[in-house]
Design a protein around this nucleic acid. Structure first.
Length: 1046
RNA sequence: GGGCGUAUAGCUCAGAUGGUUAGAGCGCGUCCCUGAUAAGGACGAGGCCUCUGGUUCGAGUCCAGAUACGCCCA
């Protein structure tokens, strides 16, 4: 029979046992083999970095990456799941720097790149074990043994092939752009790093007077927060659509945005607006440079237009230094402005900046302000507080700095990218043309290179004459390069040692020193994971594009973008069709989890105490995946209590009774149509659930489908099983009992399959036990087919009827609660008013037995008018009538109270005017002047929900009281049995000591009591060897003794 | 500063296409029920559905604006 089930269960232990089972029986491998050769569902794993410990947010993405492959596998698809690891980049380098106790490029180069990169390689998989352990423990099925690693030669070779393709298309170029740069560390930072370091600081902003060329006493008022950048000034930007004003002040004419006059001249009233002009009218005007390092460039020092210039702050005239600002660089390019770079890579002014030569730029600000003041060019300085980025490692101010680096001309393929995006389904949808679409719309070229060490080297060699060649494979490198070792490691410094002879001029070409952005590594995974096109051509082609990818929402600008960009360049389409975005995880109070706040929840704390299924279910169902989650351990506990345990206990109930009855479901067959209505109802509910869950999962909707399963479990446990309990208890085996067993069995078995992708452990345990009696059982629930709904078993009308019956029961129980009449006390009847709703009435009649049983009443009846349930009191609205009739009010009141309350109430209800006659004079009383209160009729108590009203007859006669008393007595005997520790199936002897009256009542109900309490003997002679307990029912003292008999 | 999202009970969340009295779970209080259950049921307290305008016979829902928070980007 079934394996014995304890109702107390440790999910953590259970899961560990299942993990061993999966491993021993190679269930994952088998689930793959099962569908080999069948239609594929293609999943791409976005590679995590394993040089840090995994957090809860990693669990989140990994379980969402798990559930769909599991679901699709059960639907018969072949779902390959190749793991991958992101292994390059600054995070790895920083980890090693920390270990070495250094933090600058200079120190790295002193140690030697060879040694440094060796340490990087070693540190990359530092937390691999913990990642593997976590991955397995949460039940994420992925092929870790054949994972791709971005640092492997084969992987890099594919990237080289991609880069060469891009090079051949003419989309790879070297440019001069602005990067966030830490002068102390000598390196550009990634945007992610910059975002970490914003701080609010007080800065001096300055307004400087720029003299217009050949126009005496006319000045531009130019605003900047970084005076040191004035050294590199080459232009001033205005907005051509804005209106500017010439303001007379101190015998000079100053130009600024008309909307900012008040702000700028707030220190004086001694100014006068002379003229207003359109911005466009002064475009191209020349001015005298404040600092001239443009070396006579013809285009420098004029007024240009900048879209972004606004009247928000400053003067509406912005100084342009293309070397130190991205927007400056862009407008600089548009206007052919020179880039004047007067700052070296360590953040010091170069030697030819006479007055400030060798000065650190941040120290130079006061000096420059002083200089401007002396030269009478300073108009005003002001303090402002704004947020500014600092280096998160060394806390020095970052600068935006023009550097040479390599770019992919993605702006040129923007239209293609937009088209690729059109074909992608985003979850949630708004990302598609919102955050992501807008990002594509504003596409700028991809800054590809980093001047770092541990990364994929850019495969471009060049000579002094600027001739360049891009290498696309190891073979090509060996062919063209000098002395390339057979086992060349494609990383720095080895690859840097290779020289190539230029085929144009014959001189020596050296590799450009940069490595590439790690995001290019991960964006290349569709190809590089299979070493395409050098190997596995067919394998790649049959696994492209992906049906499904899933990562956190911050990847819109990361992996989601780089994947799509590379595939669009190579194949003119997106390499993924469906993408699910996940929200961030905060702590319980909505705070970001961070080390400094100490509010980090470690996955193991949850996994070791509450278990993986509880965590999975919590993350799946608590809130839509893309919304931020406030993680709460209490929430996980609630999952255990409300869902897992309810499921488990229903299952345990079934197994306990099936074992007692030796019931083997595989030996019976009973068509659902021949089962009783309650059974057909729950089977219908089951199929509705199966249908909806399938539909929702096809739309990648985990949350709603999970909630549906939970609701079904609740219905199964708290209505179906509760209603059916007696059917399982009864000793004879008839078709009703068989029907009950089969129905509950089918529900549980189906739910174990339906829930398998969500809670792979618990579902496995339940499935294995329940299916053990079947001929066509599978070795694991995960090798089963996913349940498909049988639409002929769905009966929506029955659902409606049951809902209605349950509504009545709810109202009836409310009345009992209100009137303090226990359910055990039988009542005469329940009376229902449906206000003419025939459908509702039909439903109630249909389930009247259930209603009567649940409410413990003898009869059920309907009334066609509410008056039969409720009586009315009417009262004059004294506030209104008083104002109207004043002293005559008492007479009105007297007359009103003589009226028939019911008829008045009906009039008021129908909004009709009531006419009353006092002393032959007719008075008209409007409905709002009368207050109607409904009250319970004598002996009847009501509750209503909308138009539906339920009344319970609360009058008790002697017979009902006796019956209630007996039920109460039985209840107590049952409790005493339980206290005495008897088994459920034990038969007992019961002895009762009580008054004569109670004895009479017991004698009247002897057989019933004996049957209910499984008492063979029931009499009034207590003995010493029995378990005894004294109770009190309705002021009667009763002593009950019990013992087991054979 | 820009883009996107979110805002409903103390907490976590539901509330197609506008339509009676805005719901559930947790927590709290008071009862009730219980021979699968660590459970279940009833009642109660607790809601300017963030705010301000607008559209409409009617707005939590649609529109505009504001505010706060989050994410992304400057």
């Amino acid at each position: 029979m079934f394996k014995k089930v304890k109702s107390s269960v440790s999910f953590v232990k259970l899961e560990e046992k299942i993990l061993e089972f999966w491993k021993a029986e190679k269930i994952f491998e088998e689930s793959l083999n099962l569908n080999k050769g069948k239609e594929k569902f293609i999943f791409y794993e976005g590679p995590p970095t394993a040089n840090g410990a995994p957090g809860v947010h990693h669990v989140l993405s990994r379980i969402f990456k798990d559930i769909f492959p599991r679901f699709k596998t059960m639907k018969g698809y072949y779902v390959a799941r190749k793991a991958g690891w992101d292994t390059h980049g600054l995070p790895v380098e920083i980890e090693v720097e920390k270990k070495l106790g250094i933090n600058s490029k200079k120190e790295i180069e002193e140690i030697g790149i060879e040694k440094f990169n060796k340490l990087c390689r070693e540190s990359v998989m530092k937390y691999e074990d913990e990642w593997k352990r976590m991955t397995e423990r949460i039940g994420f099925w992925i092929d870790l043994d054949n994972a791709y690693f971005t640092f492997k030669n084969e992987y890099i070779e594919t990237i080289w092939w991609i880069l060469k393709s891009i090079w051949d298309m003419g989309l790879l170029y070297e440019g001069y752009k602005i990067v966030p740069y830490c002068p102390r560390c000598g390196t550009a930072l990634s945007s992610h790093e910059v975002a970490q370091g914003y701080k609010d600081v007080d800065d001096h902003t300055v307004i400087v007077r720029f003299p217009l060329k050949n126009q005496k006493n006319r000045f531009l008022l130019v605003w900047t927060t970084t005076p040191w950048t004035l050294i590199s000034n080459v232009a001033c930007a205005i907005n051509k659509n804005a209106t500017y004003a010439w303001v007379k002040y101190d015998n000079e004419l100053l130009l600024l945005d008309e909307n900012l006059i008040e702000d700028v001249f707030d220190f004086t009233s001694d100014f006068k607006v002379l003229e207003r002009i359109k911005g466009s009218s002064i475009l191209e005007e020349r001015y005298e440079p404040v600092y001239d390092f443009a070396e006579g460039d013809k285009n420098a020092f004029k007024i240009i237009h900048g879209d972004y210039v606004s009247a928000q702050e400053g003067t509406g005239i912005v100084h342009i230094a293309p070397a130190f600002g991205e927007e400056d660089m862009i407008v600089g390019k548009e206007n052919n402005l020179p880039v004047v770079q007067m700052v070296d890579e360590s953040g010091f002014f170069k030697s030819n900046v006479e007055k400030f030569s060798g000065m650190a730029i941040n120290d130079a600000n006061p000096e420059i302000i002083k200089d401007l003041k002396e030269r009478k060019l300073l108009f005003k300085t002001q303090k402002v507080t704004h947020s500014y980025p600092f280096c998160w490692r060394c806390d020095s101010r970052l600068i935006y700095y023009a550097k040479k680096s390599w770019y992919i001309r993605t702006s040129e393929i923007k239209e293609k990218l937009l088209k690729s995006n059109d074909d992608v389904n985003w979850y949630p949808e708004h990302i598609k043309y919102g955050r992501y679409g807008k990002w594509l719309d504003n596409n700028i070229d991809w800054a590809l290179t980093r001047e770092r060490y541990w990364g994929t080297p850019l495969p471009i060699w060049q000579d002094d004459a600027g001739h360049k060649i891009c290498i696309g494979s190891i073979e090509e490198l060996k062919k063209l390069g000098d002395n390339v070792p057979d086992d060349i490691d494609l990383h720095k410094p080895y690859v840097d040692n290779i020289k190539i002879k230029c085929n144009i001029c014959g001189s020596e070409m050296k590799r450009t020193p940069e490595v590439i952005d790690v995001w290019f590594d991960s964006g290349s995974m569709p190809y590089a994971q299979y070493h395409y096109p050098f190997e596995n051509k067919e394998l790649f082609e049959s696994n492209f594009p992906a049906d499904f990818i899933c990562e956190a929402i911050d990847q819109t600008r990361g992996w989601f973008y780089t994947l799509m960009t590379i595939s669009t360049i190579l194949f003119e389409k997106s390499c993924y069709k469906n993408v699910l975005c996940l929200g961030l995880i905060n702590d319980e109070s909505g705070q970001k989890m961070s080390k400094s706040k100490g509010n980090i929840i470690k996955p193991w704390d949850v996994l070791d105490n509450q278990g993986a299924d509880a965590l999975r279910w919590y993350l799946f169902t608590s809130v839509s995946p893309w919304l931020p989650k406030n993680f709460s351990l209490k929430g996980v506990d609630e999952v255990i209590r409300k869902f897992l345990l309810t499921f488990w206990n229903t299952y345990s109930f079934f197994v306990i009774y099936a074992n007692i009855d030796n019931f083997n479901p595989s030996e019976y067959k009973l068509d659902v149509k021949e089962r009783c209505e309650l059974d057909r109802w729950i089977i219908s509910e089951l199929n509705i659930t199966i249908k909806r869950v399938n539909e929702l999962l096809d739309e990648f909707n985990v949350t709603d489908s999970g909630r549906m399963i939970q609701e079904f479990i609740d219905n199964l446990s708290n209505w179906y099983v509760r209603r059916s309990r007696r059917r399982f208890w009864k000793s004879e085996e008839d078709s009703d009992k068989v029907s009950a067993y089969l129905t509950l069995y089918e529900c549980l078995l189906n739910i174990s399959k339906l829930s398998a992708p969500y809670i792979p452990f618990t579902s496995e345990e339940i499935y294995l036990n329940l299916s053990s009696v079947l001929d066509d059982k599978k070795k694991s629930v995960h090798l089963e087919s996913y349940p498909a709904a049988q639409s002929d078993l769905i009966d929506y009308e029955l659902s409606y009827k049951m809902d209605t019956a349950r509504k009545i029961v709810g109202l009836g129980r409310a009345i009992r609660s209100k009137t303090a009449l226990k359910i055990r006390q039988p009542l005469k009847n329940v009376v229902i008013f449906t206000d003419g709703n025939k459908k509702e009435e039909k439903a109630i009649r249909h389930f009247k037995n259930i209603i009567m049983e649940e409410l413990n009443v003898k009869e059920i009846s309907f009334v066609d008018s509410l008056d039969k349930l409720v009586s009315y009191n009417i009262k004059p609205n004294l506030k209104l009538l008083g104002a109207k009739y004043g002293a005559f009010l008492p007479k009105i009141r007297e007359a009103l109270l003589k009226e028939n309350p019911l008829q008045v109430a009906i009039k008021v209800k129908n909004n009709k005017i009531l006419a009353i006659v006092i002393d032959s004079i007719q008075y008209e009383i409007s409905p709002e002047e009368i207050l109607v209160e409904s009250a319970d009729r004598e002996g009847i108590s009501v509750e209503s929900d909308g138009a539906l009203t339920v009344g319970l007859n609360t009058l008790l006669d002697e017979k009902l009281i006796e019956e209630g008393f007996i039920r109460e007595l039985i209840h107590h005997i049952q409790n005493i049995r339980k206290d005495a520790g008897f088994e459920i199936e034990n038969t007992i002897e019961t002895q009762i000591e009580c008054s004569k009256e109670v004895q009479d009542m017991i004698k009247n109900n002897m057989e019933f009591i004996k049957k209910e309490t499984l008492s063979n003997i029931l009499s009034f002679n207590p003995k010493d060897d029995m378990y005894a307990s004294s109770i009190r029912i309705s002021n009667e003292n009763i002593k009950i003794s019990v013992k087991v008999v054979r």
